[in-house]
């Protein structure tokens, strides 16, 4: 019968070799990190804060009737759509929509470079640009059967 020479140190029965346990821990942590990276997970808290602040500035500008400032927080596509549909400069077209401007932020969800923020009386969609978060849709009302929100202001 062949015998195999065992050259590796063996831990006493019932006790795990600390080096093996450390190696296993390293492998497990590495696998979890790899899974997180592969899953496209990134730090969401700073992005949530950024989206929440941008939406807060937008609703604050609406509440102060500073529609010029509110227009500056719109995504380019939404601003273009607004001026084309309203056949007026952005600030006048935005005023005519009479978007809800009250209520604090209740919840924010960020996925990749898109975000949704619910306030007490509105749902606002945002997208991330080089300049920061910009509003893509506002004055949004949920629709049945998982259909897209119907929004007073939205991009193309």
């Amino acid at each position: 019968m062949a015998t195999i020479r065992n050259t590796a140190p063996v831990a006493p029965e019932g006790r795990q070799d600390p080096r093996r346990r450390a190696a296993f821990t390293r492998v497990a942590v590495g696998a979890l990190l790899a899974a997180a990276v592969l899953s496209g997970c990134g730090a969401t808290a700073p992005r949530e804060d950024g989206a929440r602040r941008a939406a807060g500035r937008f609703t604050a500008a609406l509440a102060a009737q500073d529609f010029g400032a509110a227009c500056g927080l719109l995504a380019p596509g939404s601003r273009e759509e607004l001026t084309e549909d309203g056949k007026a400069p952005c600030d006048r077209a935005l005023r005519s929509l009479e978007l809800p401007s009250g209520g604090g932020a209740r919840a924010v969800e960020v996925h990749g470079r898109q975000a949704l923020l619910r306030t007490d009386d509105d749902t606002v969609f945002l997208s991330q640009f080089d300049e920061g978060w910009r509003v893509t849709a506002a004055g949004c009302v949920p629709q049945p059967d998982d259909l897209p929100y119907r929004c007073s202001l939205k991009g193309a």
Binding site: S39, C41, E109, H111, G112, L116, F125, P148, Y149
Partner: peptide, 14 residues
């Protein structure tokens, strides 16, 4: 995450 990013672009709930 990818599906939700697309849904947000389409103005749908995640």
């Amino acid at each position: 995450a990818a599906h939700n990013e697309m849904r947000l672009r389409q103005l749908q709930d995640p």
